[in-house]
Design a protein around this nucleic acid. Structure first.
Lengths: 413, 413
DNA sequence: TGACTTTGTATCCGGTATGAACAAAACACG
DNA sequence: CGTGTTTTGTTCATACCGGATACAAAGTCA
């Protein structure tokens, strides 16, 4: 019953008019001036002007007073559109193996302030979430900005609709921890101003990386974007379709770690052997290079350092090429199924791509069915703290859907 | 440049108002009365009434004069909405291994008239397309209906944006045949009345099966629908996301035939071994059952007949269970990647599901990562001629997006 | 300086949906 | 059997968003 109601209410919820699309264009950096806003929205100059004026009145963007003519252009120069300097922000929280990081993120994915806490990996998720939210609340107080929502990134699959972390592998958390609820509770306890209604979104960190890169990084402009990344253990995937994260009907899509990439490979806890998870993560790379993981630094750091600094070494190079081949096989399988128009790689996979871009592209083209036709562009991630920015995107989404919610938030806060 | 323009024009094209969504609701059988139309659209009764009146004026739907009260309800009984009896149709053409089939398809996926030609499998696609279109043109003349467009289904991957058939495996067609252009040419040559502008859409038949089943069959109501089917040789897949077919950035998504389901399996022309394509199609089944394909009937028919009529036979049953296990492994892989909320099976796979539903569901649940949480519903396809109806859906789409196009078509025709 | 090009604004207008009031068609119940 | 209740459908005035047009502004180019 509630499920039905939900699909219904979202059916025609296209926000009010062109405000949302306009803000999204500015947000993603695709509307530097009112002129291009006009053409991007496909509306008349009159409407684009009105919409820009309204966004300015809402305190979300600013218009420069004295436009400078771009060289070599005719006609009246465009007034440029900027994201408001002291505009509202959202609170983003990322939990990872070594602790947490929180940030205030403005429109355009701009990190306004950030801090982190590390060392403590408590088995109690409520505890670290509360600590992180308290830190964020402090940042918010210091900044004096209006806060419109909050988002959380965790290194685990997150099941919808309840927001439970199903496999918080390298956090000492219980499987099925209700992270969304705990996050909301922590926000309520800390009385973070402004985060009363449109708050509390959580997601897998690879998903959020993909979302952030799609809007502000290497994935900008792609329609169907596939992201594959390996952070600590295992391999994660994410897919952005038509500007929206596709997380599947229960938020569990793109669990790509168990694609078979080496039939004679190592056994995997899933019962199969040669899964991407055990063949193309940092531990697999260190093992293939004949190194044993040291106590210093994360597995990811040890692996990427090795890859970047000792790629001349024959054993390291051989290990790199082995992993590239395995990864390429997995990506090719995904290309056959998803046919994305761009692929971006994060974590260890980004380092593998940068170590030998041509090899990876060749493997993917060779093993994907229609690879001949040009092949899919494969790019490294470009943003700092992309999962954090992605968590912020979740929180921004209601505002992008209908910018007028900031008015309600102002009334409330 | 053109690519950019294209994404731009489609950005805000949400049709005119609520007409399109309303027609889509009637089309998919989700709006039996004006009252539910009101709630489904999320508009006021006034608007729903006006919209229904306009659709009636366009000749697309009718409203019954004397509503009969449903038993056990209070209040004024609803007038029911019907799809207009003599409303417009679209022309649907399906090419398959044994010939072609054409149909006039009304709203609601109703096949108004159909005919087929078989026996000829000419190597020249233009020839059979012309023959099919001529047959359709005849149907249209006889029916006296208005025609709003045409759609084509071919048993091959179809590459966007040019509409080329990449692997017309069991048609003796050249790879890369420009089927869309040839179809358009055939339509123009036959001077099919009404098909002047919004015409000429072509697609892979499994994709179109999924689309048809999503709107009128076993997939109705699903948000993310995965369809897997095996017709003649090989295995095809298709995905409907949020009511729209996801065919990937170049129309080549869901080429699921090369998922590895048996590492020690038979070699596949793709270079790997044990691909779904060679492990779970009709030929594989006949082989596993120790039968050699006969000259009578298609491979699909031979395989399904065997499965349905001789499942008591131990060797047939063993072959069935083997294929179910292989298929289940492939589907589980897709579930991990796509996390659909429903799966429907066509062709041989439908017969396998019906032969032993529990086994297939158990295999999928066992091998998919989060299968414990209830598992995905797996259902057989239910429509007759579903690829044909799906081709019609392609042609109906412009009308569903903006029903007012029928006016333009009337002016033109 | 004047023609041209492009951007931005003011004003009017039309279409779509809303809201409230009213009307219609059934059932429930004394 | 008539009256109230419930649900559905329609009418009408109204609000709002975006389109179209004309006009103004701010630059380049000759």
């Amino acid at each position: 019953m509630d499920g039905v109601t939900h699909t219904r209410t979202t059916r025609l919820e296209r926000g009010r008019g062109a405000l949302g699309p306009a803000l999204e264009l500015v947000h993603t950096g695709r509307a530097p001036t009112r002129a291009v806003l006009t053409s991007e929205l496909g509306v008349t100059r009159a409407t684009a002007g009105a919409v820009a004026a309204e966004l300015e009145a809402l305190g979300l963007i600013t218009v420069d007073a004295h436009p400078t003519a771009a060289a070599g252009t005719q006609g009246r120069p465009s007034h440029r559109l900027f994201i408001a300097d002291q505009g509202p922000v959202v609170l983003a929280v990322q939990i990872h193996a070594d602790g947490y990081r929180v940030a205030l993120v403005g429109l355009g994915g701009r990190i306004v302030a950030t801090t982190s806490g590390c060392g403590t990996i408590p088995a109690d998720p409520a505890h670290i979430l509360a600590e992180a939210v308290r830190a964020g609340s402090g940042l918010l107080r210091d900044s004096g900005r209006q806060c419109l929502g909050a988002g959380l990134a965790v290194p685990s699959a997150v099941a919808e609709p309840d927001g439970e972390a199903l496999n918080p592998l390298h956090l000492a958390w219980p499987a099925g921890a209700p992270v969304r609820a705990l996050f909301l509770q922590a926000l309520a306890d800390a009385k973070v101003p402004g985060v009363t209604e449109h708050v509390g979104f959580s997601g897998n960190d690879v998903n959020l990386t993909a979302l952030a890169e799609h809007r502000h990084g290497a994935g900008r402009g792609a329609r169907d974007l596939l992201c594959v990344a390996s952070g600590h253990r295992g391999v994660g995937g994410a897919l952005v379709l038509d500007g929206r994260l596709h997380s599947g009907s229960s938020g569990l899509a793109l669990e790509v770690g168990h694609l078979t990439v080496n039939p004679e490979g190592a056994p995997c806890h899933c019962g199969s052997r040669g899964c991407l998870d055990v063949e193309a993560d940092p531990l697999a790379f260190l093992g293939a290079a004949g190194r044993t993981p040291g106590p210093e630094g994360s597995l990811l750091k040890q692996a990427t350092d090795l890859l970047r600094e000792e790629y001349a070494d024959a054993s390291v190079r051989a290990a790199g090429e082995l992993l590239i081949d395995r990864l390429g096989l997995g990506i090719a399988g995904l290309v056959n199924i998803l046919n994305p128009d761009r692929i971006i790689l994060g974590g260890l996979h980004r380092a593998l791509l940068e170590a030998d871009p041509e090899r990876l592209r060749a493997v993917v083209a060779d093993r994907s069915l229609w690879g001949r036709s040009g092949g899919v562009p494969i790019l490294p991630c470009t943003l700092d703290h992309n999962a954090l920015v992605g968590a912020a995107e979740l929180a921004w989404q209601p505002v992008l859907d209908d910018p007028l919610v900031v008015l309600e938030s102002e009334r409330a806060g």
